[in-house]
Every structure is written in C-alpha cells, then in structure tokens.
Simulated scan of single mutants.
Amino acid sequence: MAYEDEHLSQMVGTLAEAGRPLSGEAVGRLVADPPGVVVGPAVPAPVAAAEGNPPLLAALLEGVRVEGVTDGPGRPRTPKRVQEAVRAMLRGAPTGSWQLLRVAAVLGRSCRLAELAAMTGRNTAQMLPDLDALLDAGLLDWAGDDLAFRHELVWWAVLDALPPAVRQALRADRDRLRRRRAVTGAPRAADPAAEPATPADLRRRAGLRSAPVAREHRPDAGGAWESFSGVERAIARLVAEGMTNRQIATRVRLSPHTVNYHLRALFRRLGISSRAELVRHVPVSSAA
C-alpha cells in the first residue's frame, strides 16, 4: 500500500496550508481512493485517529509513503514521521514534558491527574510547568477532571515511540498502582521503589537520629544476593539502613532516577513489592 509521490505531495501541501482542523468530509475526499493512490485497508484507521489535524495528517501521509503501514498492538503502527512530528510539537518545552506525556500515554487515552502524579512520583505543583507545555502544544486537553490526549493518533504515536521494554515496565507499574488503589481506595505511588515516608524518614525530619532497619538473621535462601551486581548490592545495603533514594544517590554517586531504576529492576527480578521485602535478601553480615 503506497501513495504515488506526485499526488501525495499535493495532498501534503494542501494539509500544510490548512489553518484549522479538516472536516470528516474533507479528509475523506483527500484519501478515499483518488486517482493515482492505492489505499490499503490499514490506512483509514490512523487517518481517522488524526481527527482532521492538518500537521498530523501531513506527517501520517508522508510516513505512509516512505515507511508504509505495519501491524501494531491491535491497530496499525504509527509511522516514525508521526512520532517525530509529535516530539517536535514539544520543541522548547521543559525537559520533563516528554516524560510526562509518555507516562500519560501508558495510563490510557485519558487519565486522572492523581494517577499521573502517583506514576511519576511528583505532586501537582511539580508537574504544572510540564502540564502547561503539553496543554499549550495541543497534545493534551481537559476532559472534565481528567487529562486526555486531544488526538487519538498522538496517543498512538507516543505509545509506539516507547521502547518495548520501557513500555512493558511502565505498564507493570500502572497495573501495580491500580491494584493498590482497588484495595486502599486511594492513589499511592505506583513504584514500590519510591514509597511514602517511613518512620525513619519522619524521625529524621523531626531531628531525631534514625536507627538501622531491623533485619531477620537468616541467610538468603534463594541465593539472590549472589546474583546482585556491585551497584545493586550497595543500593540494597543502604535501603537496609533506612536511607531514602535521594540519600542513596548521594552515597553511591548516582542520580535518584538511576537508583530508582535499579530498585525497580531488583523488585521485578525478586518478585517483591516493597523495600522491606528487599531487606530480607541482604545478609546481616553485609556491612554498608
């Protein structure tokens, strides 16, 4: 399935000149089997998902010509041209905007602000600059109290731009968050590596000395400790001392984000869901 170059160029030019969303009838005239164009069965779905947005349609049709359309997760996969076009809409925006948009895409076509905050470990005030950039760029919009992708094609493109391993990890975090909300009825951090304040945290904030976390004196029956890398062992030891991710990052000279990444990887590998469970895998004789 491909569009002939000459006719496609005319179509893209027409779209680029359009100053407002095209009607369904106008879009239909552009892509409904005009002379010189072969439209495959997979093309109408992403065209409809562009919802008449001229820049998205132009990127889509050019991408179809150059890359074709391939199967995706229950729908056609968006061409890279569309993914690049969406990314370009955030040029000059705060660096966290793209990250926030990708997390929002994993949550769905629309999501609650509290759920997005829980997934990113940020409160609403911290997210405001990135939210403003996404709203100003026309990528997200308000749907009542929820945030929603303004165009379905943008949602598809952001999902498709995520590396498969990252998409899978984010979905696991999302599912874990939703299971917790179903039990507690309130949003909590999706990532067990970034848990709420512990008693040690509260003592520290009150100016009291924090005591090391008590550990059961027993060997790691599964031998998991031996499989840890040097960095993972260092992080696990410091978790066992009751340190926060930020304190650990300072000690091991990594960013808090990298510490969080290592903790998530350990949790997935060990099949656990809390820092307290991780401590059980740290030998008592292991000095920090």
Results as ranks from 00 to 15, higher is better:
residue 192 P to G: 12
residue 42 A to P: 06
residue 58 A to D: 05
residue 203 R to Q: 13
residue 129 P to V: 09
residue 5 D to T: 13
residue 39 V to R: 09
residue 168 Q to H: 04
residue 52 G to K: 11
residue 277 E to R: 03
residue 86 V to E: 04
residue 1 M to W: 08
residue 207 G to C: 11
residue 180 R to S: 11
residue 189 A to G: 14
residue 85 A to Q: 02
residue 128 L to F: 05
residue 126 Q to F: 00
residue 40 G to R: 14
residue 169 A to L: 08
residue 253 R to P: 00
residue 212 P to V: 06
residue 142 W to Q: 11
residue 143 A to D: 15
residue 217 H to L: 13
residue 133 A to N: 11
residue 141 D to G: 12
residue 130 D to M: 10
residue 185 G to R: 07
residue 87 R to G: 01
residue 167 R to H: 06
residue 81 R to A: 09
residue 184 T to A: 12
residue 286 S to M: 06
residue 87 R to L: 10
residue 118 A to H: 04
residue 246 R to Q: 13
residue 209 R to C: 03
residue 142 W to F: 14
residue 67 E to L: 03
residue 167 R to G: 08
residue 159 L to M: 07
residue 126 Q to V: 08
residue 16 A to T: 14
residue 195 E to G: 06
residue 30 L to H: 07
residue 260 N to L: 15
residue 41 P to W: 13
residue 113 L to S: 12
residue 135 L to K: 09
residue 84 E to C: 01
residue 172 A to I: 02
residue 110 S to L: 02
residue 196 P to Y: 04
residue 9 S to R: 14
residue 147 L to W: 01
residue 224 A to D: 15
residue 4 E to A: 15
residue 193 A to C: 10
residue 26 A to D: 11
residue 217 H to I: 09
residue 211 A to T: 12
residue 81 R to F: 02
residue 255 S to K: 08
residue 275 R to C: 01
residue 248 I to W: 10
residue 211 A to E: 12
residue 266 L to D: 00
residue 97 S to Q: 06
residue 171 R to N: 13
residue 209 R to E: 08
residue 257 H to Q: 12
residue 190 A to H: 03
residue 17 E to Y: 10
residue 88 A to K: 02
residue 101 L to R: 12
residue 271 G to S: 04
residue 143 A to L: 13
residue 43 V to A: 15
residue 30 L to R: 10
residue 101 L to T: 07
residue 127 M to S: 13
residue 187 P to G: 02
residue 89 M to L: 15
residue 185 G to C: 09
residue 278 L to Q: 10
residue 92 G to T: 07
residue 108 G to D: 13
residue 104 A to V: 04
residue 281 H to R: 15
residue 264 R to M: 00
residue 14 T to W: 12
residue 215 R to N: 05
residue 112 R to N: 02
residue 48 A to S: 05
residue 237 R to D: 09
residue 8 L to I: 11
residue 187 P to H: 05
residue 176 R to Q: 14
residue 178 R to W: 15
residue 221 A to D: 10
residue 272 I to M: 03
residue 124 T to G: 01
residue 188 R to S: 04
residue 138 G to H: 01
residue 266 L to P: 00
residue 121 G to H: 07
residue 77 R to T: 01
residue 54 P to A: 11
residue 19 G to A: 09
residue 107 L to P: 04
residue 194 A to M: 10
residue 268 R to D: 14
residue 160 D to K: 01
residue 226 E to C: 00
residue 10 Q to R: 15
residue 26 A to G: 01
residue 180 R to N: 03
residue 166 V to L: 10
residue 112 R to Q: 07
residue 121 G to T: 08
residue 288 A to N: 01
residue 168 Q to K: 06
residue 146 D to V: 03
residue 95 T to P: 00
residue 12 V to G: 05
residue 155 W to G: 03
residue 223 G to T: 08
